[in-house]
Design a protein around this nucleic acid. Sequence first.
DNA 1: GCAAAAGTGTTCAATGTACACCCATGC
DNA 2: GCATGGGTGTACATTGAACACTTTTGC
Lengths: 236, 236
Amino acid sequence: MENHAKEYNVEEFERPSVTVDVILFTIKENKLKVLLIKRGAWPFEDMWAIPGGFISMDESLEHAAARELTEEAGIENVYLEQLYTFGDPKRDPRTRVITVAYFALVDSAKLKQSEKTDKEVTGSKWFPADTLPNLAFDHEKILKYAVRRLRYKLEYTAVGRELLPTDFTLTELQKVYEIILYKKLDKRNFRKKLASLDILKETNRYKRGHHRPAKLYSFRKNVELKSGFKSVQFEK
Amino acid sequence: MENHAKEYNVEEFERPSVTVDVILFTIKENKLKVLLIKRGAWPFEDMWAIPGGFISMDESLEHAAARELTEEAGIENVYLEQLYTFGDPKRDPRTRVITVAYFALVDSAKLKQSEKTDKEVTGSKWFPADTLPNLAFDHEKILKYAVRRLRYKLEYTAVGRELLPTDFTLTELQKVYEIILYKKLDKRNFRKKLASLDILKETNRYKRGHHRPAKLYSFRKNVELKSGFKSVQFEK
DNA sequence: GCAAAAGTGTTCAATGTACACCCATGC
DNA sequence: GCATGGGTGTACATTGAACACTTTTGC
């Protein structure tokens, strides 16, 4: 059939540009936050955008996403998951740009170091996921999609761990869920569920604060992010 | 920051080729089947592949997917959903090719017409999803991913409707679920669940066969594909 | 009248949800 | 000693799973 002949001459086809964009989430100040970057040039100059960039010809998509995170946020080894590919012909006024969006999760404690070194130098800033500035391109749509996916994932898997240090208290874990799902959870039910899932292990250390010390827990190794916290219906 | 300067000169970047591949599922002969196309040229000449092709510069990704379905399978207006984007640098020996995979569902009755006209002319063939030939490129991986997603979707949404004509019997619907989930379901529980979901409406027509006639049902309009049939755990 | 698919309810188990009090520490 | 967050169990409702017989038709 004719298509095969066409396929052979790969070079005949005009090629779009391909980027990766990475929505990086963290929790700070009891809020879900997203890292955005101020654009310095046309188009959408001075507007905020999701960090991203062009893929190299010899790197995988995931590698490109990880590289962007290092370059633009100075962080490494974070949870990274492909979200969706946005390819509307008019989404970038310069030329045809298809973007493969990823989302990433990082414990805010991990940010502290890099934050001090290149703070504001990069023109990047953390915004609360529920009060965003106007965004460049179709980035608002992408970001909203990412938030939906994050919520969904949180209910059905244990991705919450990616937003916490290795050791944490049960109350801290519950807060992660409450912040992202945007609703209060019942302490006893939450803990009962955790116990039944058998994904945590106690340490024998405690977090001491101003009140009664809280036992520290960590996730079991080899818990393949699964098993959920269904408490809201998301699809509509 | 330096990246913005780079971004401005979009043209400086080498561009990959971008294709869409579409995994088209249907149910025939009580099996889940997938449409594959025999390759006519290097690379992977004479091997079977998922239908797909290059995107045009002025069409959306979804449009490209729909167009491929029309060109390669002669069908239109089917359920189409973006699956995942595969971009390993070595997945195509010719050059860097990133493919945005979609999956599509079609009622086999809808195929009958086009089937007769261009059968075998296109070098395409329906394979049972569980007994595939060796596939070109990374298409086996893509296809397995599609099957997983289809199962998942079937449990949590009402996509099953896309594999049936507008009117169908409850037994036919149950068979769709059994074939895809690859397990027997209990007739009474299945019907009780359907009733509670309130997504079907009775017609006053019956399907007459060799035995007792079965009432025909259709899906309510505006049932946004949701609400599920959880009966197996999929993630692992 | 008999073979074959259509249709229909109840019981039990597991899971989810609501809810209130004592405990250990810092100050 | 008191304010504050840490920690724990029980009763009820909802959902899922197992299970068998009668009905209606074509032949």
